[in-house]
């Protein structure tokens, strides 16, 4: 581990014990700089969610170490945010209260302002009084994104956050995320199945292999922002990721 690595994942493995023991991820090591946007791609079941849970501190049972800003990660922390693969909204709270749920020790006025700001950011201002049962899957997922952002985390873990969104909404949300990240210098670890999305958003793309989950390759993506999805350079990176998946 180098002293200037903001995040260091060092030989992390996770074995689930039960009726049959199963090693989900094995010997995963990589480092990240502050403010970096890392996308993780890999087949279903290769351990992407498992890795995010370990890095965010939700799953303390693992081998190897994760350090963020020099501190060993052993439990969740307010400076880290998490968007789960499912929306996980609280059914008994309306959209506003769901988004405001993680906020603590903030004056009421400021709280209301923050909630409104992030609801509007995900385009749900008209639904702020709605209950989760009244929302579509994509809307619910956007509420959960606003809820994770409202605490203004330094490191954000996102597990397929745009998976349930239609193409247009997805592109809007991608652009909003890039804006927030530019403003806040937030470090992002973003799991996706969508190679285009990974190339559009990331500074680097970590490709995982399966059984057990390992780092197959880390592809560096230095395309300048804003990116053009149809440019030749974009296509080249896309092809690199593609080849990493399907060749060898």
């Amino acid at each position: 581990m180098m002293a200037n690595d903001y995040i260091a994942v060092d030989n992390v493995s996770r074995t689930f014990t039960g009726d049959n023991t199963f090693t989900a991820i094995q010997d995963i090591s990589f480092t990240m700089e502050k403010g970096e946007f890392l996308c993780i791609v890999g087949q279903s079941g290769c351990g992407k969610s498992t890795l995010l849970r370990i890095m965010s501190g939700i799953d303390p049972v693992h081998e190897g170490t994760v350090t963020i800003n020099g501190n060993l990660v052993t439990k969740p922390d307010k400076t880290r945010g998490m968007v789960f693969q499912e929306a996980r909204l609280l059914d008994w709270m309306n959209v506003s209260n769901n988004v405001g749920f993680p906020l603590q020790g903030i004056p009421k006025e400021e709280k209301t302002k923050l909630i409104e700001e992030y609801i509007s950011l995900v385009g749900l201002t008209d639904f702020k009084k709605s209950y989760p049962r009244e929302l579509s899957g994509g809307m619910a997922q956007r509420v959960s994104i606003a809820r994770a952002l409202v605490n203004r985390p330094e490191v954000m873990f996102m597990d397929e956050p745009f998976g349930a969104l239609d193409y247009m909404t997805k592109i809007n949300m991608q652009n909003e995320l890039l804006k927030i990240r530019e403003k806040s210098q937030m470090t992002v670890i973003f799991v996706t199945h969508d190679i285009d999305e990974a190339v559009y958003l990331s500074n680097r793309i970590l490709v995982m292999s399966k059984n057990p989950g390992k780092v197959k390759e880390i592809i560096v993506n230095t395309l300048p922002f804003p990116r053009d999805r149809n440019s030749e350079e974009f296509m080249n990176i896309r092809k690199q990721v593609y080849d990493c998946f399907f060749i060898n």
């Binding site: 965010s56 501190g57 939700i58 969740p76 922390d77 307010k78 880290r80 998490m82 789960f84 499912e86 996980r88 609280l90 059914d91 008994w92 709270m93 749920f101 993680p102 603590q104 605490n151």
Partner: peptide
């Protein structure tokens, strides 16, 4: 358990967790 995990990940204080998550559930 997903809601327990959610509250953990947001470091929600215990009392708030009981009254805003557990009891309504």
């Amino acid at each position: 358990v997903k809601l327990i995990e959610l509250s953990n990940s947001m470091v929600i204080p215990k009392l708030k967790y009981v009254f805003k998550v557990v009891i309504p559930y």
